[in-house]
Amino acid sequence: MASLVESGNLPLILEMMLNTAAQESPALSATELHAASTVVDGSTVIELSEAHLDRIRRGGVTAVNHTVTTPYADTATALRQVNQCRRWIDAHADRALLALTVADIERAKAEGKEAVILGPQDTEMIGVDLDLLGTFYDLGVRILQLTYQRQNLLGAGCGENVDPGLTHKGRIFVEAMNDLGVLVDVSHCGERTGLDAMEVSATPVVVTHSFCDAMSPHIRAKSDAFLRRLGEQGGVIGITTLSGFLYYPEEPTRRPDLARFVEHVSHVVEVVGVDHVAVATDYDETLTEAMRAEQLKEKEFRNLLGDWKWEERRAIGMDDAAHFPNFTEALLAGGFSPADVTKVLGGNWLRVLGEAWKPASR
């Protein structure tokens, strides 16, 4: 398996630093490695605020996949939410930019800005209207999750008892996403629906935020068989750091830490290889303790999130985006090489984005 250095997927400065570190002693420190890497959060809901930008800067994060619309939003609501985010980015052009291409992410890294990728976690605001799909693409959407928990016109969510797979309309929709250059996300899809999407898609499919069912069984987790198919298709899975997802089956009330995150990453590597795993916090910066309490009154959210205390809902060592350097330290401590750490931090996301964002029709 070629390294990132060999494949040319690392920024030039990082390639030079890693080559130098291989020849000289001491090796590149965790702080230097993190600073040189293009760090990507595969899934988050950002707070449109100065506080968010400050956290991102302290965490050394270059790009985020932002859940720009709320799940199950209707068309008008989703359009307003996209517009609100676009206007916020415009108002903070000195610190943020809209990511439409991998070159935009590279520019954000060079300029010390945050690249915001618009990635709704649902398609219900579009239905099967391919003109609307094109409209959301024109507005900047570059990642799109097919279903969120429940059945829709495209396929089944992982919260359904039965998953008949991708519908006929769903197959046409995935092909249209390929033609436009929108990355197909199946994080909340049922397993059959996700596998069908991989069968249909001409470009890699991703699981922007999930974890390993073999380690932490859950309706949102992905099986080893699913991971193997994902790897064959060239996709990537982002491992989340929510306590309810990284839980220990033998100690369900024990709060996980970043060593547990590394265990999930390592499991993916064992099953399918290091080129197919990445970071995705799955944090919602807009969520308050009161809002979470309301959510947990609904069975769907209890099944998703578990009954964790507010202050324990995230893995130890990753309370917010400012703590992203802890990922680098944890991965190095877990035995990952510097080159492989850069893949997990963002290199794998850059590869798959580059493949999916090349429209087949252009």
Rank of each mutant, 00 (worst) to 15 (best):
K222S: 07
G155K: 01
L139Y: 04
L97S: 12
A225N: 13
S25V: 09
E175C: 06
I56F: 08
I239R: 11
E32L: 13
G119C: 00
T135M: 13
E250A: 08
A278D: 00
D129R: 12
A290V: 13
H188T: 01
E250Y: 02
H209R: 11
G134I: 01
D340I: 03
V200M: 00
W88A: 03
D41L: 01
F226W: 12
L100N: 14
N83W: 07
V274I: 09
S201R: 10
S243R: 12
D131W: 06
P338W: 02
V182R: 08
S361P: 00
M318V: 04
L18V: 02
P204G: 06
R229K: 15
N161H: 11
G165K: 05
S266M: 08
T123A: 14
H92C: 00
Q295T: 00
A30E: 13
E270L: 04
L180Y: 12
R150S: 12
C189K: 00
G231Q: 00
K169W: 13
K169A: 15
L287D: 02
G335L: 12
Q295H: 13
A63H: 00
P256M: 11
T288L: 04
T20E: 15
N83A: 15
L4W: 12
L304H: 14
F324C: 13
L353F: 14
Y283S: 12
L130V: 11
Y283H: 15
L100M: 11
H188R: 02
V64T: 13
E114V: 15
A197V: 04
E111N: 12
L195V: 08
S187T: 06
V40N: 10
F173L: 11
L132Q: 05
Q81S: 10
A278I: 05
G127Q: 01
Q81H: 03
Q23Y: 08
L12R: 12
D185G: 13
T147I: 00
T241H: 04
R314K: 11
K109N: 07
V141M: 06
S201P: 09
P217K: 09
G334K: 00
E300S: 14
T288V: 00
L10D: 09
P164W: 14
I89F: 01
I117G: 03
R314C: 02
F336M: 13
E47R: 10
G159D: 02
G60F: 01
L18P: 05
A36E: 03
A225E: 15
V341Y: 04
G157T: 04
R55M: 14
L100F: 00
N9M: 04
S223Q: 08
A93E: 11
P256S: 11
